[in-house]
């Protein structure tokens, strides 16, 4: 019978509860400690992979090259060079210009797409999301390579147009130019923009938009007053996620940029390759990061001010 088997275990009551060791008792009492302990392997790897390399990179940027070795006496000469020699400034501003244009183009082109999926797709939403982001996961090198195939001197576009008889000789501006780099970057990073945009749009409570309509706003007004401000976090995230990695890109400029399209990434890579001036390369990497941080800070400040003004 169930009722007898369910009596509590009186006979065993005298046995003491199992007492844990001091360490596990401490862990049982402190949640934070358990959390940190559990995270420690991940953190260790990330520290080894992020913090340690940056410390050494920072150190190396204050050294000088001596043949195949380094003079490790502290100097800021490398930083002075990047400041004084115009080539570095030109490369940096070109990098920021190219990835800035690519970022703006990507966000502008992706916003309607994200908006469409967030507001107008009711069935198979998941399918759309996967379709939009799928290309992003494939090899970056190959996607850039694909554009070389398309924009090439005898590539898809030029040869296609010539076969059709629309042009006599290949359009040269397509390959080896800033335009080519911008097109490729915008295409390659589209998925990175779509996801944060979609997430921020999807989160908007649809009844807010209905309320705005109810209160007399037309489609344009309610977009500007409700949807756009509420999706701002997504826009900011998308901007960062594209702008920052693309400023350091060197594959795209190397394959498609030509001499006119080279960016700071190519120069850094040169320092570690053919030029073999690692301290200079380290300095450039640090300078690039500092500039990115500064631009990001200004961007955040401006968008926050703008949001305050709208509100």
């Amino acid at each position: 019978m169930a009722d007898t088997s369910l009596q509590h275990r009186d006979g065993e009551a005298a046995a003491p509860l199992r007492r844990p060791s001091r360490v596990s008792a401490l862990l049982h009492r402190s949640e934070a400690l358990r959390g940190y302990l559990l995270m420690s392997p991940t953190l260790l790897i990330m520290i080894l992979g992020i913090v340690a390399p940056f410390v050494i990179l920072l150190a190396m940027s204050t050294w000088t090259r001596q043949g195949f070795d380094f003079d490790t006496t502290f100097t800021l000469a490398n930083y002075e060079r990047t400041w004084n020699e115009p080539i570095f400034g030109a490369l940096l501003s070109r990098s920021f210009w190219v990835s800035g244009v690519a970022t703006v183009a990507t966000v502008l082109l992706c916003y309607p797409m994200a908006y469409y999926v967030a507001f107008h797709v009711h069935h198979r939403k998941m399918m759309w999301l996967i379709l939009m982001t799928l290309p992003f996961w494939t090899s970056y090198l190959l996607r850039v390579f694909a554009w070389k195939v398309i924009l090439g001197y005898e590539g898809v576009i030029n040869s296609g147009l010539m076969t059709l008889g629309w042009i006599d000789k290949p359009l040269e501006f397509l390959l080896y130019s800033k335009t080519a780099v911008i097109i490729t970057l915008a295409h390659a990073w589209a998925a990175f923009a779509i996801l944060p945009l979609y997430v921020s749009l999807e989160k908007i409570d649809k009844s807010l938009i209905e309320a705005a309509t109810d209160l007399g706003d037309g489609p344009v007004a309610r977009f500007l007053r409700i949807t756009l401000p509420l999706s701002m976090p997504g826009i900011i995230a998308a901007t960062f996620l594209i702008f920052i990695p693309t400023t350091g890109d060197y594959i795209t400029p190397a394959l498609l940029g030509g001499p006119d399209g080279a960016m700071i990434g190519n120069f850094i890579q040169l320092q570690f390759g053919a030029v073999n001036n690692w301290p200079m390369g380290a300095t450039l990497a640090i300078v690039l990061m500092l500039w990115i941080a500064a631009i990001a800070a200004v961007f955040l400040f401006v968008t926050r001010k703008a949001q305050e003004k709208i509100a």
């Binding site: 940056f54 990179l57 890109d249 850094i268």
Partner: peptide, 16 residues
């Protein structure tokens, strides 16, 4: 690592 240019990670690890 999502918001730091890959090249910087690459060279930093190389140096390390």
């Amino acid at each position: 690592p999502l918001v730091i240019p890959g090249i910087i990670f690459g060279v930093a690890l190389l140096v390390l």
